[in-house]
Design a protein around this nucleic acid. Structure first.
Length: 884
RNA sequence: GGGCGGUUAGCUCAGCCGGUAGAGCAUCGGUUUUACACACCGAGGGUCGGCGGUUCGAACCCGUCACCGCCCACCA
């Protein structure tokens, strides 16, 4: 006997352990089955499960569970990302707490410490995923820094280098002075900042009393100015072009150049040029052959290239000092308040500095071409489709990708430098030495590049590196390309685009056929969850209080395409209630002997109500299947919720109670069998969404299950399970009973009956009232059609139900006649309005001429119905009036 | 500045091919009824953001405006 309420905590741990023990998630056991694959976006090894993961993983899990049960050889490939910067920061912080410093330890000792940290505290998220019920093939778990994947990284790097698609270049990069590393464009976040616009006067060299005014938001960069630019057609400055100014505080003689970049409308129309510290100025400098003077060191302090007075100052201290000095020199014209966008590093949290360094770049432009083409040709498609445009926009304007990072934790760049600086890019040190020997004709010492690769470089290989590439493994052949990638829009550029490029480069084939992009999870008010706002909801906390099924269902119910998920605890609670509801329905089934009948086929049902529920169940099944395959998870959730609760529990179970309690044993038995079948069907369909409670019930209710539900074949729901006649009749009955209920409520009858067949005595007064509702009685007579039978015996049972039915009417000792009169009058008013509306339509020649016949017929029917109802209500009103 | 998305009941959102505007929650009223009070029954609540157009007919298609959100962008 099932307990009175469902307690998720115990069931979830027990069930998950069983599944895992039995190897239920493992791919590769069905050689004859069609492969189906999804790649888990590898969470950071530093990560713990947040709501975004919970959504992302739930979606993948539903798909995986679905296709697995559909009979495919489903692979959900799990793993973790080494997360270069994030991990290095965590470990450095831990070491700092012990009074240790990375640089003092040295590279090797530090890396040992990171690996040790990974072994002890990394990957917490993997166990949290188990709490969520996720079923990737854990036996295949990979790590971006494991041997195989590292080998893949080196192989690709060498290949790209030799193809000329990776190269070394000296140019401005986004430099994070706090972390001391370059970062890519994508890792820069612009933040609107209130600042100032300082207007400085630069005196002319040959006429120091005359100034050119330039405005800047970054006074400290003036130390590196090497020109002032004006627009070539700006009349105000035409005479100055080619002359020079003396750079204040520095004393450098710098030219006034003409360049389109200077906007005459902006400020004074003259702009200071600092080629080493501004991306635009860099370009201007290049055009005019200007000197590039780097005045900052790696930590963002003023370096030796600047006048002594400023050396060693932090860039912001230098700013203050310079403004003061300029003012003292009488060269500060004015200060305006100014709001502008300041670039920040997304990890370091400090403003990034455009800085001139040597870095490794990947020629993304070339790699992007096939990746663009693949999407144009539909070999990979985005769901929802709207993201296609975002993808194209970025890919078509893609910039060189800076792939080197001045960190220690990551894939070290497989490049070695000879004594004269010759670069040897090889997959191993041995090969590098071999190449060097060939090059120099003698043994030389080589030094490996100190830098590591951007984390996303290895993530880009994930779809094939995890499957064994560069070896041509069976696994790789079988599961590449994957069917779908499930991810949030925030990493389309970081990850999806890179996988497309790398996949096409290495495999000459797209990495996945479909990219399903889901939204962000926000708090109940629609705000982004963040630690600083204190509105972060912990998925594990919700799982503990409401169960993993409830959390999953909540996320799924809102996973509509193109909409954010707003997570409110109230909703989670609601779906917890849903699990309980299902549990109790199953309990009811158990108590009434509605357990699966091995020989029972849903087609054999004869009673209308049974034929009807079977058809509804089948319809729901088809809806769920279509929704999952179409990535409309919210529709799957809604269909199941409303069928289970609104149709099965509220209508079917209530409706059949009299049949179960009745004397017609055949009808009762058929109903028990049907009930069990429908419940089973619900468990089947709901299983990918709510795996725990469904498995538990499946197990509890069936005696000899051939499968666990997790591996049971997905049900097919053929069209012909739905019997139109049964639908029509039930529809009528349902409407009738609704009417009865409404009347009962209107009469204020304390109902002692469930629906609808229980009150057996009517007083004369009540019988009199029934006269006022003749229409109802007439309709009730048709309840005989609850059964669709013709044999005398069956007709007898139908009659029995009918007999009872006539006695069920909700009856009151007292009716408030005034209230009843008002109600009827109101109803009649509404009907009049409706009739008038339809009449207008039906008298419109255009409508009659152009609307399809069925639409016109429908309007006529509606009008007739409304008219008939109105007639009945009018008569009832009359009787009420008489009675009063 | 460019792009994308949104605006439907008090709240959160569905609404597919243009044909009677929906759900959940919340609110209010009723019900201890042997599956379930984490429940059941019922009720109220709408100018579908504004304006214009197409159409016999528009929440839906087109145009335009307003407001909100997000992404991208080098403007000193």
């Amino acid at each position: 006997m099932l307990d009175k309420t469902y307690s998720p905590a115990e069931v979830e741990t027990r069930r998950y352990a069983e599944w895992e023990r039995e190897g239920a998630f493992a791919a590769g056991h069905r050689d004859d089955a069609t492969p189906w694959a999804v790649m888990m976006p590898p969470p950071n090894v530093t990560g713990s499960l947040h709501m975004g993961h919970a959504l992302n993983m739930t979606l993948q899990d539903v798909l995986t569970r679905y296709w697995r049960r559909r009979g495919h050889d489903a692979l959900w490939q799990p793993g973790m990302d080494h997360a270069g910067i994030a991990t290095q920061m965590v470990v450095e912080r831990n070491l700092a707490a012990e009074g240790k410093d990375r640089r003092e330890m040295g590279r090797e000792a530090f890396l040992d410490a990171v690996w040790q940290w990974k072994g002890e505290s990394g990957g917490m998220i993997v166990n949290q995923l188990r709490r969520l019920g996720a079923t990737p093939d854990w036996s295949r778990e990979r790590f971006t820094m494991d041997d195989g994947l590292s080998r893949a990284v080196r192989r690709i790097f060498v290949g790209l280098y030799k193809d000329g698609l990776i190269y070394r270049d000296k140019r401005l990069v986004n430099w994070d002075p706090k972390l001391g590393t370059a970062i890519s464009d994508l890792e820069v976040e612009s933040k609107e900042t209130k600042g100032h616009l300082w207007h400085f006067r630069y005196p002319l060299e040959d006429d120091p009393a005359t100034h050119v005014t330039v405005a800047t938001t970054r006074p400290e960069t003036m130390l590196g100015d090497t020109a002032v630019a004006v627009h070539p057609e700006d009349a105000r400055y035409a005479a100055l072009i080619g002359r020079h100014v003396t750079l204040p505080l520095v004393g450098r003689r710098i030219p006034i150049v003409a360049d389109d970049y200077a906007d005459p409308e902006q400020g004074s129309g003259a702009v200071k040029i600092t080629p080493a510290h501004d991306f635009n100025d860099f370009e201007v400098g290049r055009r005019h052959g200007l000197e590039m003077i780097n005045v900052l060191d790696a930590a963002g302090r003023i370096n030796e290239a600047a006048p002594e007075a400023y050396r060693g100052l932090d860039r912001f201290e230098a700013r203050t000092r310079i403004v003061a000095d300029m003012e003292a020199a009488g060269l500060l014209e004015r200060i305006d308040d100014h709001v502008h966008m300041v670039p920040y590093g997304d990890r370091g949290g400090v403003p990034i500095e455009p800085w001139l360094t040597d870095q490794w770049y990947c020629d993304a432009k070339v790699l992007a071409e096939p990746a663009i083409k693949a999407v144009e040709e539909g070999r990979t498609r985005f769901v929802p489709e709207t993201w296609t445009r975002t993808y194209f926009d970025w890919m078509r304007n893609i910039q060189p990708w800076c792939i080197s990072r001045q960190l220690w934790w990551g894939h070290r760049i497989p490049a070695w430098y000879g004594p004269d600086g010759t670069i040897f890019v090889e997959e191993s040190e041995v090969e590098a030495y071999r190449a060097a020997r060939a090059h120099y004709g003698e043994e030389v010492d080589l030094a490996q590049d100190e830098d590591v690769l951007d984390t996303w470089f290895s993530s880009g290989l994930w779809p094939f590196s995890t499957l064994g590439w560069p070896d041509e493994t069976e696994t790789l052949k079988r599961y590449y390309p994957g069917d779908v990638l499930v991810t949030g829009f925030d990493i389309i550029f970081f990850w999806v685009a890179r996988m497309m490029m790398m996949g096409l480069y290495a495999m000459d084939e797209v990495p996945f056929r479909t990219v399903y992009i889901h939204a962000l999870v926000r708090d109940a008010k629609g705000q982004k969850m963040s630690k600083s706002k204190g509105n972060v909801i912990d998925p594990i906390d919700l799982i503990e209080r409401y169960g993993a099924d409830a959390l999953r269902f909540t996320l799924l119910s809102q996973a509509a395409q193109g909409r954010d998920v707003k997570l409110s605890e109230q909703r989670v609670e609601g779906y917890r209630n849903f699990a309980t509801k299902l549990w109790n329905a199953a309990r009811y089934c158990e108590m009434n002997g509605c357990t699966p009948r091995s020989g029972f086929g849903p087609r054999s049902a004869r009673l209308t109500v049974n034929r009807w529920i079977v058809g509804e169940a089948a319809k729901t099944g088809r809806a769920v299947t279509a929704a999952i395959e179409g990535y409309r998870f919210n529709e799957a959730a809604t269909a199941l919720y409303s069928f289970t609760w609104g149709t099965f529990c509220d209508w079917y179970l209530e409706f059949t109670k009299p049949i179960l309690a009745g004397e017609d044993e055949a009808a009762a038995e058929e109903t028990r069998a049907t009930t069990a079948w429908v419940l089973d069907h619900i468990l089947h369909l709901l299983n990918p969404l709510m795996p725990f409670v469904t498995e538990e019930l499946w197990d509890a209710l069936g005696d000899d299950r051939a499968h666990r539900l997790i591996t049971a074949p997905w049900p097919d729901d053929p069209d012909d399970l739905a019997d139109p006649a049964a639908f029509e009749e039930m529809d009528w009955i349902v409407r009738l009973i609704s009417t009865v209920r409404a009347v009962r409520a209107e009469m204020n009858v304390p109902a002692s009956a469930k629906i609808p067949l229980a009150v057996k005595d009517a007083t004369p007064r009540q019988a009199e009232w029934l006269g006022m509702h003749e229409d109802l009685i007439l309709r009730l007579a048709r309840l005989s059609s609850i059964t669709r039978t013709d044999t005398p015996a069956e007709r007898g049972s139908a009659q029995a139900i009918l007999d009872e039915a006539t006695l069920i009417l909700p009856l009151a000792d007292v009716i408030d006649l005034d209230q009843e009169r008002a109600r009827l009058a109101k109803e009649i008013g509404k009907l009049d309005q409706e009739i008038a509306k339809i009449d207008a339509k039906l008298s419109n020649d255009q409508f009659l001429a152009k609307a399809p016949d069925d639409v016109v017929a429908e309007q006529r029917d509606r009008r007739d119905d409304a008219e008939a109802t109105k007639q009945r209500l009018a008569e009832a009103l009359e009787r009420v009036a008489e009675t009063a």
